[in-house]
């Protein structure tokens, strides 16, 4: 049996005695896993993370981190976690180095070792040149990376990232992905929330979807992808056919004068469509996926639940 990095059971959170943000959720994260926690705005993702990291007091239910209950082994639980929160939470006037070294200190890492480690993580996240810059003078993307550096300084077994790539440019996002993948390979369990489903698809092996305080899906990425039974393509063509053919259960739609949309069920060969088009003497100049397939499924799932 593999160890559970996180075990959440029947977790409820009622804010201010009125608003129920979590309606009793349960899910586990296996050690070494890479989980995407998805859900629309206000679904309860940050609340869940807040409870795990003891920034939010739970109303009821239980949370264990590597077997340590946050009720009676809080310190041990905290040591296992590194948190990258959704909102920047630095002291504005402290420099990158001070922030990271002090954070290490809070975990009891001696100053000298902390300084050595700080150099390593700041270099890894390309912030070493900025080490003496106060946090408020960093760009948004740099602040995100600083939060990652800060979260890693005590070498946590699980890294929890709440929208780490919000407002990060494409290049840095990709390097962050690489960084996280590598970290996961070396054994760190990772949980991340994101609104970019492409990101979740690229990175994560498991996916949990939370909507209005309830877990509505918790499965492997493979499984969810296999459920995407129809794919929609957009084809740019040089002339519009008179009418569309009947090919199995493929549906055609005209978008505008020079492009069509085709819904193609899984298992149907694209060749069918191309050969019909070439029979009509129509040239296809380009083709693309209409939108992220996962995105559509996500919308469907969260709509149904609402």
């Amino acid at each position: 049996m593999s160890t559970k990095a996180i075990e959440i059971h029947d977790l409820k959170k009622i804010y201010g005695g009125q608003f129920t943000a979590l309606k009793g959720i349960s899910f586990d994260v296996e050690e070494g896993d890479f989980l995407a926690l998805l859900g629309p705005n206000g679904a309860g993702k940050s609340t869940t993370i807040g409870v795990i990291c003891s920034l939010v007091n739970k109303t009821s239910g239980s949370v264990k981190v590597f077997g340590h209950s946050i009720d009676n082994e809080l310190e041990a639980a905290k040591r296992c976690i590194g948190l990258v929160p959704q909102e920047f939470n630095f002291s504005q006037f402290e420099t990158c180095l001070q922030i990271v070294v002090n954070q290490a200190g809070y975990y009891g890492v001696p100053r000298k070792l902390a300084t050595q480690r700080a150099e390593v993580v700041l270099k890894q996240l390309s912030l070493w040149e900025k080490r003496n810059t106060p946090s408020r003078e960093l760009s948004g993307g740099m602040k995100r990376r600083l939060m990652i550096a800060r979260a890693l300084i005590h070498e946590p077994k699980i890294l929890i990232l709440d929208e780490p790539t919000a407002g990060v440019d494409i290049e840095i996002r990709r390097s962050m992905w690489e960084f996280l993948t590598e970290l996961n390979k070396q054994g760190t369990t990772i949980v991340l929330t994101t609104h970019y489903l492409e990101e979740a698809e690229q990175l994560c092996r498991r996916i949990a979807i939370i909507n209005q305080g309830e877990i509505i899906e918790n499965t492997s990425m493979k499984d969810i992808i296999s459920r995407l039974d129809v794919e929609t393509f957009v084809l740019d063509i040089d002339s519009m056919p008179e009418k569309f053919p009947e090919i199995n259960s493929v549906t055609f739609r005209q978008r505008d004068d020079t492009s069509i949309e085709v819904d193609i069920p899984k298992g149907i060969s694209l060749n069918l469509i191309f050969s019909w088009l070439s029979e009509q003497n129509i040239q296809v100049s380009s083709m693309r996926n209409k939108s992220n397939r996962l995105e559509e499924l996500f919308v469907k799932l969260t709509e149904n639940a609402a």
């Binding site: 003891s54 909102e87 630095f90 809070y106």
Partner: peptide, 18 residues
């Protein structure tokens, strides 16, 4: 108060400092 306001107090809250 400014640690609370800037939320940098969270740095201590997530860590195991008693």
């Amino acid at each position: 108060f400014s640690a609370k306001f800037q939320r940098s107090i969270e740095e201590m809250l997530v860590s195991p400092v008693p």
